[in-house]
């Protein structure tokens, strides 16, 4: 029983780490620009497809492809910000909302045109399974968890310990004051989109390796990403980390101890409960 319990925590943490990566991008963009960037899931899928293309067609190694895909993701993020969101930065929020929906369709359909309708699985050489006291840990899942952890720590350090990170936090707190303090708000917007899209692409590659990249996957992903945002608190980076893990483990426990038929329902019930009891999210201070 205890082995199964630990096994379910491990299962949940692996999936939760991917939710965290998606949610980190969403929460940063929302925190800085107030945009619900629905296209984030499609950007992640683009990254998964791109990595598959680099590995399978161009024969580039797994790690270089991963890094290259993240770099392309960053570039795509900058383009999206400049072409799609920047022109409506001073317009009513409904404009960026509609643009976000439009972008989702455009990127989703571009993925279909460029990469086809078949699911693709990113090939990896990691087929071993570790067993620790009866808890089985497939090598690939361990690496997914570690990669996500490295990226999350890297992102946290970047935001907390660097000048650009301080600028991002300043813009998140008060955009006008940050501009008055001499921070180039436009550059910060571009940086945030680049960083978020790179993380989204990383999530897409990890999903592609662990499960598959396919049409339709992005919708579920972005819904889960927003669920994490609500759990952790809109715009909160620690909230996205904790929220992702909580959602992943809750889903695993729901399937194991209640019913797999209600797996998704239970995670959304949790979200509703947080909205009712602690609407500011698990990791944000109380709003007044």
């Amino acid at each position: 029983m205890i082995i199964d319990f630990i096994q379910q925590i491990f299962n949940g943490l692996v999936v939760g780490s991917i939710y965290t990566l998606i949610a980190l991008g969403l929460t940063t963009i929302f925190g800085i620009l107030g945009i619900a960037h629905f296209a984030h899931g499609s950007v992640a899928m683009f990254g998964g497809y791109l990595a598959f293309f680099l590995i399978s067609t161009l024969g580039i190694g797994l790690l270089p492809s991963f890094i290259l895909a993240m770099a392309c993701g960053a570039l795509l993020g900058v383009v999206l910000e400049r072409v799609a969101y920047y022109p409506v930065r001073n317009a009513p929020p409904i404009n960026s909302f509609i643009i976000a929906l439009g972008l989702t369709l455009i990127i989703e359909k571009t993925n279909l045109l460029a990469f086809g309708v078949d699911q693709v699985i990113i090939p990896t050489p990691f087929n071993r399974v570790f067993s620790v006291g009866g808890v089985t840990m497939p090598e690939l899942r361990v690496y997914v968890l570690l990669t996500a952890a490295v990226l999350v720590v890297g992102m946290t350090l970047l935001i907390q310990r660097t000048w650009i990170g301080m600028a991002v936090r300043a813009v998140a707190q008060n955009r006008s004051t940050a501009a008055l303090m001499g921070i180039n708000v436009n550059s910060v917007s571009m940086f945030v989109f680049a960083l978020s899209s790179a993380l989204g692409v990383a999530a897409g590659v990890l999903i592609g390796a662990l499960f598959a990249v396919a049409p339709g996957v992005s919708e579920g992903l972005v819904v889960k990403g927003f669920a994490v945002l609500i759990l952790g608190g809109l715009g909160s980076i620690p909230g996205a980390i904790v929220g992702g893990m909580v959602l992943g483990v809750t889903e695993a426990f729901a399937a194991a101890f209640i019913s797999s038929g209600y797996k998704d329902v239970i995670s959304f019930l949790l979200m509703i409960a947080v909205l009712l009891v602690r609407p500011e999210g698990l990791m944000r201070g109380k709003t007044r």
Binding site: Q8, N11, V15, L210, F211, A252, A255, A256, S260, K263
Partner: peptide, 10 residues
């Protein structure tokens, strides 16, 4: 769904 580990663990 493509992750059935929770159900299979059960």
């Amino acid at each position: 769904d493509r992750d059935m580990t929770a159900q299979l663990t059960k």
